[in-house]
Simulated assay, not measured.
Amino acid sequence: MISSSRRGDVGAAVRVVPDSPYSAICVVVARGYLDDPVSGAGLAHLFEHVWFAHELDAPTVEWGETREHAVVLHHVCPPEEVPAVVPALAQRLLRCRAALPDAMAPRVAASLRLIALERRTGRERRVFGFPRRDIARALRGDPGFDPVAVDTDGLRFDDITSFLTGRRLAVCVAGPQASPLPSPEDLLAAFAVPPDQDGTVSAPAPALAGGWTVATDDVEASATAWLLPPTVDVAAAAWLAIGLIERCPPPAGLRWVSGRVVSPFGAAAVRGGHLFAVAAGLADGPAPDLVHDHLLPLLRGDLAQFDAVRATTDATRIEAADQAAIDAIDLIGPATGHDAVRHAVREASTDTMRDFAELLAESPHADFRARAGSRR
Rank of each mutant, 00 (worst) to 15 (best):
P106V: 10
G166F: 05
L117F: 09
F163H: 00
R140T: 09
I115D: 03
P176H: 08
P143E: 06
S162C: 13
P180Q: 02
T161R: 03
P131I: 14
L181R: 03
P131Y: 06
T165N: 06
L188M: 13
A138W: 05
L181W: 04
R140I: 12
L139D: 02
P101N: 05
F128A: 12
T165P: 02
D151N: 08
A174N: 01
E185I: 15
R113S: 11
T161G: 01
L117Q: 14
A99T: 04
V173M: 05
R107I: 02
I160L: 03
A138G: 14
A116C: 06
V173K: 02
L114R: 08
D134H: 15
R119H: 15
L155F: 07
V148D: 14
R97C: 08
F145K: 04
F157T: 13
A110E: 15
L169F: 04
A109Y: 04
P182L: 10
T165F: 11
L114Y: 02
L181Q: 07
R167P: 01
P182G: 11
P184I: 15
T121W: 14
R126A: 08
M104D: 00
V173Q: 01
F145H: 12
L114A: 04
R123A: 14
A103E: 15
D153G: 12
A99M: 07
I135R: 03
R120C: 03
V150G: 00
L155M: 08
